[in-house]
Design a protein around this nucleic acid. Structure first.
Lengths: 157, 157
DNA sequence: ACTGAAATCGCGTCAAC
DNA sequence: GTTGACGCGATTTCAGT
């Protein structure tokens, strides 16, 4: 679903829409020096090709009561490797888990987790995550300070 | 900048706008069972209070040529603690680094990085990151499989 | 004071050139 | 690739509760 390459204008559009996903088509067209219908066609093409996967409001976690963010490394017990797909389904089902990848290195999975406070994090880890059959080790890295918040993907690297 | 609490309608709105950041006001109003002006006023209030920090298009990294994503744990040499703010500025300046937090645990910083391929990652780590004065240890966790991609913040926890 | 109805204005969107 | 036209949505104002 990614036939041709992206040219400079597509990249400009992507940069703009990452920075301001609600820009109107005419604003966008002006910023990338394109006529409105041209711009519109390109945006739609990018959406249809799946280059643009969607649009989302960025919400401050604290506003929703999430005072704690953490990355959590998960290890699966060797004798439970047959159950990985079930374990992954469990992971996906927890709303506190915002992201999850399998990774190289010391852990099998790396999760991004939000909770109300440290107590809730502790409860989530011990009462929820560690109760998933097959989870062997849980190691959390609590986020202390945000040094660089959610930067857009570079369009010109 | 977060005076009052969020009620159920605000939370519905946030859920909707996280799922579809480009929904028109009337669509949104319909989905949360509100009149258009009401809905509009609430959205604007959420924006002004900083609850909604912005809107962004979600772009597939592969479309921009980023085939590799990794989390990187950074450690700062003890004798360089006086330079942390400079080091952080360096980190922010790398466009390949999408996110960075200071964290508890084995590392001082945890970064999220994208590169074209493994070779570029290796080059970035050795020629760029490790060249930053004060960086002592660099440990990468390469993302293999995406188990749960960028879920919205839960609005009802 | 807060809600919803209405009215205006500008944008999204398509078609024709 | 551009211009123009049409219809719909965004946004404000105002009147009613």
């Amino acid at each position: 679903m990614n036939g041709s390459e992206l040219d400079g204008l597509d990249r400009k559009i992507l940069a703009q829409l990452q920075a301001d996903g609600r820009a109107t088509n005419v604003e966008l067209a002006g910023r990338v020096h394109l006529s409105a219908p041209q711009c519109f066609r390109r945006v739609r093409a990018l959406e249809e090709r799946g280059v643009i996967q969607g649009y989302a409001a960025r919400v401050r976690p604290e506003s929703l009561g999430f005072g704690v963010m953490a990355y959590v490394g998960l290890t699966i017990a060797g004798e439970q490797f047959g159950r990985v797909r079930e374990i992954e389904a469990s992971i996906r089902a927890f709303p506190q888990i915002l992201e999850c990848h399998t990774v190289s290195g010391d852990h099998d999975y790396l999760l991004k987790v939000v909770t109300r406070d440290l107590k809730s994090l502790s409860q989530f880890l011990t009462d929820r995550l560690m109760q998933v059959r097959g989870v062997d080790d849980v190691r959390s890295m609590i986020c202390l300070e945000e040094i660089k918040p959610a930067a857009p993907l570079p369009v010109d690297l």
